[in-house]
Nucleic acid binder design. Structure first.
Length: 958
RNA sequence: GCCCGGAUGGCGGAACUGGUAGACGCGUCAGACUCAAAAUCUGGUAUUGGCAACAAUGUGCAGGUUCGAUUCCUGUUCCGGGCACCA
């Protein structure tokens, strides 16, 4: 009987589905375990071998935990709202709902072949009304909440209204730049005034602000969706634009997002990325009086600095071009220059600014006074100061800050040295460990200590105060697009009103075209019925639905609430979350914030969503290249080569000019004839991606390549050693590079079990690695060897009920221990190796004992579930192997009584000795020193000491 | 520029708290089976020298600590990832 994997895998997949074996209940006497994958965006391109990597890992762990006696929640769904589906709709006229449905079907079909243990009865799709109803609901909770800094948690907005009615703006002093008001003033405000103030506090709010506007996509983007000044999706230019937008007040959670990192098991790299994104810094705000202004219209320039200790090193001030005081600061004689500079700044796109950082700037003509010694300090404008951070103005200390120093040098501003020999006049020194000089009352103080001294002085003199700043900004939460959750918001007289919860879901209406609406509004603005109801016309961004999906899996069919509190109390946090690092600062921060928010309001009982996060590495493509001969500026020859292309093998691809011509002359003459003359220096070889599936290792399958594309049908090849070898390069896996490998075709050829194990065998999960199909045979061979322990091709069944020998049990228990340890620490690649070794060893021992095989089958089940289920039943079991008890390694078979030890003298191995494992140090010493070889080497001299490393070796030090 | 991570045979990668470096797989070589090939099985395979036993050298590079270093320390090169005027 042969191992016919395709029949067997189909059989069990059907059986498992029919029996609903993966269905999991929301209660159980067993302990719970929640294994989650980052759900996919169902793109039209389908899966390549890189996608299932994380799913296979999570599936192995989910099955392992189940065998270990846990009630395991392991769901899957689709992050279905988003730009690409809409872009596709614009281009092809297919409704996003339809293309999404088709893509989901395709994804599902591909995933099903791999044999995952997902509980599909819990599937969620973020674009289905039953799901986004609750996304809208959570949005309403955010809209109706504010962040109470005193209590460090979100509270209902009604509590803020109550506070205003009772004591005016007292309780929110220092929150935001809002004019103070008393309780009676509050009551006297118009409805609009009141709502405008409340809007400043809502956790989901609408406001005007600089946003990242992407013209090509016709929408705004969040900061993490902009990479190097262009859109993450599509790579289109992004400009800053002032627009009315919805925001998520994630900045209020900055501290808790930071502190929460201590309570979760994320990689250090991941924690650091989030920490940097949040970017907390400690410093002070300082007011500088603007010189030469009258006492009546006294203006102050406020700066933020982390280094108040350098206050006497301030040689100039810089304000951002967008700073509100620019017009007042600009003196008449500088007017022209400032205007020209502002024009220049506006002409530069975000991308240009990032690409080349020029030192630019312009003097305003104004001066401010140093608050401690009243020195006059010139005020400049420069684009290197960002309007969005701190106060949009800085005090420049060239001797301590590299940027300030370069600016000073560029514009010839004299530099004050406050750190003595620590500053060499050539570059700034940002040290905190220097003793201050030229610094008035700070002279002689260590900079590190001076920071606090200055802040105290500032605060007591009322010219500044301690201040914490964050790089993180509030997250832009609206998109001028169609394919997203509609906001449950209605506008009346410029006031945003929440829809009643009973009106949810606010269904996404059908549209005829997906083109943007007027005035930068979304496509929903084109629908008269929509605008007639004064509904918000933008939709929510892609990350809205993914910010809470892990909760919906727990209670996916509940239509009373997003997730019953009892159910979320049971499943609690995600125990293991597997996905890529690309969501480090997007999805992971947003979902952590939503979790904290829902916790604050008491809807769930935990405030971090993911207990442990594992980042799988990317699987890169291994591209193959063929080298095509092109002859420039010779149209007649080129025409011939277009008809009959000529490719040279990789080994010859480095040749040029005359040498190249010599190598390819015969083939070229066949195509072009003998009479052609041309300059060999105009001959170039251009590398062209060849489909990896047409290449075996590096050798091109020439007939298959010719059949691949009509234009290559007549191609000719210059070979080396009778073969055409391709060049290779590791690149991102992508259809356009023809380096994608389709998992389904591999499953068809080798079976799902082989495919799963091979993906794990490739290397450590967290490491990025190039895909190479070659090695898959080895894993396949392993499963066939395993099969042969049960069945012989001629004899049929060979397994027996005979008792196992000690040697066989030793192999078994060693393997159980190893697999258990490796799986527990997610070292799946070494676990697969250990399983291979076990099967090899059992094969050598000709072990066909049920007693041994049965346990091997169970520990192998998470890795290769189909073959194990089949063999489990073959061994006479009636129930599924999924519920088998996980074997325990028996120490008895792991301990050896005697072992051969290498004996080294000063680190060099000289001989080997058999030593009983319970021997004492003295016994070992006597044995070693009594040995002839050792004696010979010692040459009569006594050794300094004998080092006996149990289970390892013995070293004699002389 | 700053912050992380990495570098081990022809290749992917093993190696527990410092203890025989190269497990396992691929590739390759040899052999068995075969008329032959494929498939399968068995064995060899870090490098250099030697028929061999064996010897020497070997974990990016240069040092250091140690009886002993892929592992720890210092410096350095290269590669990958993240951040990038955040004052």
């Amino acid at each position: 009987m042969e191992y016919s994997f395709s029949k067997l895998e189909k059989k069990w997949q059907e059986r498992w589905t029919a029996d609903e074996v993966y269905r999991v209940a929301n209660n159980s006497p067993k302990p719970k375990y929640y294994v989650l994958d980052m759900f996919p965006y169902p793109s039209g391109k389908g899966l390549h071998v890189g996608h299932p990597l994380g799913y296979i890992a999570s599936d192995i762990f989910a099955r392992y935990k189940r065998l270990k006696g846990f009630n395991v929640l392991h769901p899957m769904g689709y992050d279905a709202f988003g730009l690409p589906a809409e872009q596709y709709a614009l281009d092809h006229g297919v409704h996003p709902a339809d293309s999404t449905r088709m893509n989901i079907e395709n994804f599902r079909k591909q995933m099903d072949r791999i044999g995952f243990s997902f509980d599909w009865s819990r599937e969620v799709t973020t674009s289905s009304p039953g799901y986004y109803r609750w996304t809208q609901w959570i949005f309403l909770q955010l809209f109706n909440s504010w962040y109470n800094r005193g209590e460090k948690k979100a509270c209902p907005i009604s509590s803020l209204v109550a506070a205003f009615e009772k004591e005016g703006s007292k309780s929110i002093a220092g929150y935001r730049a809002i004019d103070e008001f008393t309780a009676s003033e509050w009551k006297g405000f118009s409805r609009k005034q009141q709502q405008d103030i409340l809007m400043e506090f809502r956790l989901a709010y609408c406001g005007y602000g600089e946003v990242n506007w992407c013209e090509a996509l016709g929408t705004v983007l969040a900061n993490d969706e902009v990479v190097n000044g262009v859109s993450e999706r599509g790579g289109y230019p992004v400009v800053k634009k002032k627009l009315r937008q919805w925001y998520l007040r994630i900045t209020e959670y900055a501290d808790r997002l930071l502190e929460g990192l201590d309570t979760v098991a994320f990689s250090d790299a991941m924690k650091e990325m989030q920490t940097n994104w949040i970017g907390k810094s400690y410093g002070a705000e300082i007011d500088f009086e603007i010189a030469d202004t009258g006492a009546s219209d006294q203006q102050k320039l406020r700066v933020y600095t982390t280094r108040p200790d350098t206050i006497f090193g301030v040689d100039f001030m810089v304000v951002a071009p967008e700073h509100a005081l620019v017009p007042q600061l600009t003196k008449a004689e500088q007017q022209k220059e400032v205007e020209a500079y502002l024009d220049y700044v506006n002409s530069r796109s975000e991308r240009e600014r990032m690409a080349e950082k020029r030192i630019t700037g312009c003097f305003t003509g104004s001066y401010v006074l140093n608050p401690f010694n009243s020195h006059r300090i010139p005020v400049w404008i420069s684009e290197y100061v960002l309007s969005g951070y701190g106060t949009g103005a800085i005090m420049a200390v060239p001797c301590g800050d590299e940027r300030d120093f370069k600016f000073a040098r560029h514009f010839g501003i004299p530099v004050t040295n406050i750190v003595g020999k620590h500053f060499n006049g050539e570059e700034a020194n940002p040290t905190k460990d220097a003793i201050l000089e030229n610094s008035d009352f700070l002279n002689g103080a260590l900079m590190r200590d001076a920071i606090g001294i200055v802040i105290e002085r500032l605060e007591s003199a009322g010219i500044g105060n301690r201040r914490v700043n964050y790089k993180m900004r509030d997250a832009a939460f609206s998109r001028q697009r169609y394919w997203g959750e509609p906001f449950p918001i209605k506008w009346e007289n410029g006031i945003a009103y929440a829809l009643d919860e009973k009106e949810l879901p606010l269904l996404l209406p059908e549209v005829k075209n997906y083109k943007p609406g007027p005035d930068g509004e979304g496509p929903l603005a084109n629908i008269p019925e929509w605008t007639a109801r004064h509904l918000e016309t933008s939709t929510m961004p892609g990350y809205a639905g993914s910010s809470w999906y892990f909760l919906r899996y727990m209670d996916p069919h509940n239509n009373q609430t997003f997730c019953d509190r009892k159910v979320s109390d049971y499943w609690n946090q995600v125990d293991l979350y597997i996905g890529g690092t690309e969501h480090a600062v997007g999805h992971l921060l947003y979902s952590r914030m939503w979790t904290k928010f829902l916790f604050d309001l008491g809807y769930i009982g935990f405030d971090e969503p993911y207990r442990k996060l594992l980042n799988q590495g990317m699987i890169q493509g291994s591209s193959r290249f063929v080298y095509r001969v092109e002859i420039k500026e010779n149209e007649a020859l080129e025409a011939k080569l277009r008809q009959q292309p000529l490719f040279v093998s990789h080994g010859l691809s480095k040749l040029q000019g005359r040498e190249l011509l010599n190598a390819i002359q015969p083939e070229l003459e066949k195509i072009a004839g003998k009479d052609f003359r041309f300059n060999p220096d105009q001959m170039v070889l251009s590398p062209i991606h060849a489909d990896v599936n047409l290449v075996d290792g590096l050798e091109l399958d020439i007939p298959a390549f010719k059949a691949w594309r009509p234009e290559y049908a007549l191609a000719d090849f210059v070979l080396e050693n009778g073969k055409y070898l391709c060049g290779s390069e590791t690149e991102k896996m992508s259809k356009s590079k023809f380096n994608t490998v389709d998992p389904t075709s591999l499953v068809e050829k080798y079976g799902a079990d082989t495919f799963r194990m091979y993906e794990m065998f490739l290397g450590p999960l967290e490491q990025s690695k190039p895909w190479d199909t070659k090695g898959i045979e080895g894993v396949h061979r392993f499963l066939r060897k395993l099969w042969r322990l049960f069945y012989d091709e001629t004899k049929g069944k060979v397994w027996t009920n005979e008792p196992a020998t000690a040697a066989e049990l030793k192999v078994l228990h060693k393997t159980i221990k190893k697999i258990d340890e490796d799986t527990e620490k997610f070292s799946f690649n070494t676990a697969v190796s250990a399983l291979m070794i076990a099967v090899n060893e059992l094969g050598e021992l000709k072990c066909h004992k049920k007693e041994v095989l049965e346990k091997i089958v169970v520990i192998l089940t998470p890795y290769a579930p189909h073959i194990c289920e089949e063999l489990w039943h073959e061994l006479g079991h009636q129930t599924t192997v999924l519920d088998a008890p996980y074997p325990v390694a028996n120490q008895q078979y792991l301990v050896e009584s005697e072992k051969q030890y290498p004996v080294a003298i000063n680190g060099k191995t000289r001989t080997e000795l058999n030593i009983s494992l319970d021997a004492t140090q003295q016994q070992v010493e006597a044995l070693v020193l009594g040995n002839d070889t050792v004696q010979k080497w010692l040459d009569g001299k006594p050794p300094k000491k004998v080092i006996y490393v149990k289970n390892k070796m013995i070293n004699v030090v002389v």
